[in-house]
Amino acid sequence: MRTATGISPATVPHRTPGWQLAPYADHSAAFVFSSAPVGVHVLDRLTWLVLELCDGRSAGEITEHARTVLGERPDATEIVDGRIGRLLEAELITLESRSPA
């Protein structure tokens, strides 16, 4: 099953190498400095959280954890999928398909 944005809950996002995270002093957001491609990205707190959760968890597991911040919003999956999409566009993560057990 895929969500409206096309990411399967079984998909596993992985962080890519070659970037460094630098939180704002008040932790309201974070800079990400990447070397390939060279760039600077600013992540809001939720996108930052999603990036930190790309540690082997599936997209579905990331969404469940993000609900601690989002609450029981009916659009939580779409919100997290959107953040995953932004991280993909910035080349900070890659996606791996996980076969259902």
Rank of each mutant, 00 (worst) to 15 (best):
R57F: 09
D81A: 14
T94L: 13
L21N: 01
E78P: 01
P17Y: 01
A66N: 04
L87Y: 02
G6H: 09
S28D: 13
H65K: 10
H41V: 05
H14D: 12
D75A: 14
A66G: 03
H14T: 01
L92E: 04
G56M: 06
I79W: 06
T3C: 08
V40R: 11
E96N: 09
D55C: 10
E78S: 09
V38N: 00
A36W: 03
L46T: 06
H27F: 14
E91Q: 15
W19H: 14
V32M: 03
L21Y: 01
D26G: 01
H41M: 04
V12E: 05
S8Q: 07
T11Y: 05
D81K: 02
R73V: 10
A76N: 05
D75H: 12
A36Q: 13
T47M: 12
A29Y: 13
T94V: 15
E72S: 12
W19L: 00
S35H: 10
T16P: 00
V32N: 01
I93F: 04
T47F: 00
V69S: 11
A25C: 01
V69W: 15
R15P: 01
L21W: 03
T77D: 13
I93H: 00
E72L: 10
V42H: 12
S28I: 01
T11Q: 04
R45V: 10
T5V: 00
F33M: 07
L87S: 01
T3K: 02
A76S: 14
A10V: 00
P17K: 03
E61H: 07
V80D: 05
P23R: 09
A4V: 08
R57L: 15
I93A: 03
R83Y: 11
A59C: 14
G60N: 09
V32Q: 03
T5C: 01
A76D: 08
A59D: 05
P74H: 15
R86N: 15
E52Y: 02
T94Y: 08
H27D: 12
P37G: 05
R45L: 12
G56K: 04
D75T: 13
V12S: 04
A4Y: 05
G18D: 10
I93N: 00
L87W: 05
A29S: 13
L87A: 03
I79A: 06
S8C: 13
P17G: 03
Q20M: 08
E61R: 06
L70P: 02
H27W: 07
E89H: 14
A29V: 00
H14L: 15
L43C: 04
V42C: 07
A22G: 00
R73N: 08
L92M: 07
A30H: 03
T63G: 07
I84A: 04
A90D: 05
L49T: 03
G18Y: 10
A59I: 07
L49V: 03
L21I: 11
H65L: 15
T63Y: 04
I79V: 15
V38I: 13
R67Y: 11
I84C: 03
T63W: 05
P17N: 01
T16N: 08
D26E: 09
T77E: 15
A10F: 12
P9S: 09
T63D: 12
E78Q: 12
E72D: 15
Q20P: 00
D26I: 02
R67L: 08
E64P: 02
E52F: 08
I62A: 10
R57K: 12
T63C: 15
L53A: 09
V50K: 02
A76E: 06
I62E: 07
D55H: 06
